[in-house]
Simulated scan of single mutants.
Amino acid sequence: MSEGPLPKEGTAAPTRQAASRAVPFRGGGFAPSSHRAAAWIAFAAVIAAWQFGSSMGYIHPLTLPSPEEILTALADLARSGDLWRHLSASLGRLAMGWSLGTLAGLAVGLALGMFSIARSVGLPFVSALFPIPKIALLPLFIIWFGIGEPSKVATILFGVFFPTVINTYSGVDNVARSLIRMGQSFDMPTRDIVFKVVFPGAMPAILSGFRISASIAIVLLVAAEMIGAEWGVGALVLAAGNLMQTDYLIAGVVLLSLIGLTIGIVLSRLEALLLRWR
């Protein structure tokens, strides 16, 4: 029986050291990281290009004011005290509506995910009401609660409630059943299974729902404040638009963007705190 071709003259056979060479590790997983410097550089580049275009006359100030004019408008609002009045009114409504809608959504979402009767009865109602545009219900809330604060808070609450329910229900439903059965096998109390197994397992989906509901809350806040509100960022944007004061209008948009950015940072810190087990 032939033992295979011999190595050609001048070529060395594979050595034991080469055969036992370590294979590089390739299983690092998909773990993207954020680079804060890149974000700040991108922001600075966009603002610099915007200011350059405005200074050179490429961008008309009535169409899009320059960053310098927007900063001047914000400074004027701060000096007059109107900036704090608008911000405090908007933040109060946002905090109240988002908190109440989130608490109600968490309770209903957990019930839908854990109990058969609640799922059978509640899920069709949630599926039917979720697609309704919440802004369209604002006139109805005004009829029910009046034109004051309750109608604005109710609009935000209603808009926050449904995405929180959907994400909480989906997160609970996707928890590995083997973990729940393991807890039951070791005679863990139901309360411990809920708070030590189900709730932590559903937390990534719940926090994702928080981000979605926070964005929806800001949109509904602006819509609610444009109807019958004296103070609030939405009222500021509406009044500036009616008077063609685009610098104040964009200043209001910048305030809304800062609110959303702040909420995003807080939620990122919350994720890092609650999802350390990942």
Rank of each mutant, 00 (worst) to 15 (best):
I265C: 02
L106T: 05
H60V: 00
I147W: 11
W84K: 12
R278V: 00
L83T: 06
L83K: 06
L179C: 01
S178W: 04
S33N: 09
P24T: 03
A18G: 02
F52S: 14
L261F: 13
A136D: 05
G4Q: 01
T63R: 15
T72M: 10
L106F: 11
P124M: 07
V194T: 15
D173T: 11
M114P: 03
M226S: 09
S34K: 06
V197W: 07
S151G: 04
K196D: 15
A48W: 12
I206F: 08
G252Y: 00
S213Q: 04
T63W: 15
S88W: 11
V237N: 02
G53C: 05
G159C: 09
L83V: 08
E69R: 13
I132S: 10
L157D: 01
L129H: 10
A154C: 07
T72W: 12
E271P: 01
E149Q: 14
G29E: 08
L77Y: 02
Y169E: 13
A22I: 06
V153W: 01
G109K: 04
V172Y: 07
P139S: 07
S127N: 15
G241L: 03
P14F: 05
E230R: 15
L64W: 09
R211C: 05
L138V: 11
A38N: 09
T155W: 03
L83R: 06
P14N: 08
T63V: 14
R177P: 04
V237T: 09
R36Q: 13
T246V: 14
V233Q: 05
I166G: 04
A229Q: 08
A42Y: 03
